[in-house]
Design a binder for these strands. Structure first.
Length: 190
DNA sequence: TTCCCGATTGTA
DNA sequence: ACAATCGGGAAC
């Protein structure tokens, strides 16, 4: 994991596919397998770090292995893993995941009735994990916050899809979205 | 201090 | 196709 986390976002994003995110809550353990990611860096007009360090984006410039959580659209939280060297403003947005453990609690957090709808979008992931604020932003990965674990299976490299990023208006030509082609839990088809 | 708009989602 | 909903950041 250390190796992945220290890579530039564009290299780290595909390597995070298949990795697990674990959150320890008083109600139980929540475990996800990452199936869709997007890379952002400070040279990218679509990135929050493009305009430099602000109070909100400060965690993006921390060393790889920290978290960046932001609030958007007046109602949604999105989760990013900070990667690369300190001061570089590189992050990987977690866009979708596959629920592995604590699924009943995720259903409770989400209020939906189909498992495919639990975590197939960036704000759905945070909602399923019970993240309702930006308190985790700037925290280090680890059991106290969110734990990142390596894949428990070999990831078939030919199963990794690449596309333009979702929901942005700038730098739409950059193919910095990565996903597991065969996963039913990706946010949308491409 | 004002104003615009967004790395989205659920509903019509 | 579109409303919901509000903080950040740029402009004034």
């Amino acid at each position: 994991m250390e190796a992945v986390i220290s890579l530039p976002a564009i290299e780290a994003a595909p390597k995070l596919l298949g990795c697990q995110l674990v959150r320890y809550t008083p109600q139980g353990i929540l475990r996800l397998k990452i199936v869709e990611t997007e890379a952002y860096n400070q040279d990218d007009p679509a990135s929050h770090s493009f305009r430099g360090l602000t109070k909100r984006t400060a965690p993006m410039f921390a060393a790889g292995g920290h978290l960046y959580v932001y609030f958007t659209y007046g109602m949604h939280y999105c989760l990013n893993i900070v990667v690369g060297k300190a001061g570089r403003g590189e992050v990987v947005l977690i866009r979708a995941a596959e629920p592995l453990e604590g699924i009943d609690l995720m259903f409770k957090n989400r209020g939906v009735d189909r498992i495919q709808l639990l975590t197939n979008g960036p704000a759905k992931v945070t909602q399923a994990l019970g993240i309702k604020d930006t308190n985790l932003s700037g925290k280090k990965l680890g059991k106290g916050a969110l734990e990142l674990l390596p894949p428990t299976e070999i990831i078939d490299q030919t199963n990794i899809g690449v596309s333009g990023r979702v929901g942005i208006t700038r730098a739409t030509d950059q193919l910095w979205r990565f996903y597991l082609k065969t996963s039913p839990f990706v946010s949308k088809k491409s």
